[in-house]
């Protein structure tokens, strides 16, 4: 845990990589690639975030406990988004029963 010293050289390398990736993702933002825009943008964001977590936050040198905390948080976040989206994405599959429609169009209500 505390104690591992990362060299300035490595820090600088990470820093430059992060800047370059920011440039790349911004440049891609000016091109319309359809659905690939979000995929590339998120892939770059995940890459950048991983660098920050592993090196700036010393996760690479930390014990397994911080990793466990981090992994479970991501699992829980995935649960939140996946199960909610399972509703949002399938809501349009349902169709109101026929009776309803005829009732409302015939002006009874």
């Amino acid at each position: 845990m505390a104690g591992h010293i990362v060299s300035i050289k490595l820090y600088a390398l990470i820093f430059i990589t992060l800047l370059v990736m920011t440039g790349v993702t911004t440049a891609v933002g000016y091109v319309d690639l359809g659905r690939w825009n979000i995929i590339i943008a998120l892939a770059i964001a995940i890459f950048k975030a991983s660098l920050v977590i592993l090196f700036f936050m010393h996760m690479k040198y930390a014990g397994k406990l911080p990793r466990l905390v981090f992994a479970s948080t991501l699992l829980w976040l995935a649960i939140l988004i996946t199960l909610t989206m399972s509703d949002v994405l399938t809501r349009s599959w349902d169709h109101p029963p026929q009776g309803w429609q005829s009732l409302s169009t015939s002006g009874q209500r």
Partner: peptide, 18 residues
Amino acid sequence: GFLVWGHHMFVSGQSMYA
């Protein structure tokens, strides 16, 4: 316990597949 919350929403307008 975190996988089941939709059982409070069966008649809310939630998708029946969910």
